[in-house]
Design a binder for these strands. Structure first.
Length: 329
DNA sequence: TGCCAGGCCCTCTTTAGGGCCTT
């Protein structure tokens, strides 16, 4: 198993508008590789954001990066975003080691993506695995401090990760290693700054007229309600083509089906079951996203689930709200 | 003084309670 190669990547954000952004952030990247039980070598590329720098309110320049795993993308590129008033202009240059990039093309996260490619009925779906780190468990009282996404179709800009300035203290640094000092400074985007960027990023991954399935572990009870609350806090509606899939019920289903040594449905237990090694700190968003990408692949294989099955198991924002209302009544 | 997360699942249950999962 080889690890440690450095891959630069970028977030190619097309020109778009944003109300107020006063941030500057950069990323360094690390790679992650693992070998699954069926001898299929899988290599993951994660990212981490450090070196956050302050910016000015109305005019600033910032590097935004995600990773490149593009097919045949051996050109060097770099990205430089200039924020002038309310407009972001994107230009890019990133240095990518060709050998490393060739290796990165071996990535095959999910049979799901192959199924999407082969099935016309499913070709409109985009599957994005995501994870958030927060200041605690309460969706009402706590805030998101890190978010990471991975589009399983891969290619350029298939990942997105950033710290988020919660504008409050981080009381649980012992969990994820993210401290108040790391996020409470001008260089880190606040949620209100990040939302338009996030929406733009997801739009850039969508297929025309297609739906996006967001996958997370314990999505129904934790990640999705958190996202819904954060968007609502800034009067932003969840796009109607967003679906959500929770891998926790899939893990329960696997235990019920028997024939597995899995005794807990936690992400850590699933990682252990499938021999997925963590490169970096577990409980950091992109590390968990990378692990869950592999877990999703193995879970769907073990449970013999197709993408159609996953679509049936997915839920919408309305489902969460309706179930909450039912409970109230 | 009162609140402290909340939804799902299991069982010694169903007019309930407790454990698990997420940070």
């Amino acid at each position: 198993m080889k690890t440690g190669s450095m891959i630069f990547s970028l977030l190619h954000v097309p020109r778009f508008r944003i109300q107020s952004l006063a941030n500057c952030w950069g990323e360094t990247f690390h790679s992650f590789s693992t070998t699954c039980g069926n001898n299929s070598n899988v290599r993951l590329l994660g990212s981490r954001i450090y070196g956050l720098q302050g910016g000015q309110r109305k005019k600033w320049t910032r590097p935004i990066t995600t990773n490149i795993e593009g097919k045949g993308s051996t050109k060097s590129k770099s990205i430089k975003h200039e924020i002038l008033s309310e407009t972001i202009l994107a230009n890019a240059t990133v240095n990518v080691n060709k050998t490393q990039l060739d290796k990165s093309q071996e990535i095959q996260y999910c049979d799901i993506q192959q199924e999407i490619a082969e099935n016309k009925d499913l070709s409109s779906y985009t599957v994005i695995v995501f994870d958030i780190e927060t200041t605690g468990f309460s969706r009402e009282n706590e805030r998101i401090i890190e978010i990471a996404l991975r589009d399983l179709q891969g290619g350029e800009n298939s990942t997105f990760q950033t710290l988020v300035n919660p504008q409050c203290k981080v009381p649980n640094s012992h969990i994820h290693g993210i401290t108040t000092h790391m996020v409470n400074k001008p260089g880190v985007p606040r949620m209100e700054d990040l939302i338009p960027i996030l929406l733009q990023y997801v739009r850039s991954r969508e297929k025309p007229g297609g739906d996006v399935i967001f996958v997370a572990h314990n999505a129904r009870c934790f990640d999705v309600p958190f996202i819904i609350n954060e968007l609502r806090r800034y009067s932003v509606e969840i796009p109607p083509n967003w679906l959500f899939l929770d891998t926790l019920p899939l893990a329960r289903e696997l235990i019920k089906s028997g024939g597995t040594t899995l005794s807990s449905t936690s992400l850590a237990a699933l990682r252990d079951l499938y021999g997925i090694k963590v490169d970096g700190s577990a409980h950091r968003a992109m590390v968990d996203v990378n692990a869950l990408s592999l877990i999703l692949s193995r879970l769907t294989s073990d449970l013999k689930l197709t993408l159609s099955d996953l679509v049936k198991k997915s839920f919408t924002e309305s489902d969460i709200i309706n179930s909450k209302n039912k409970k109230k009544n």
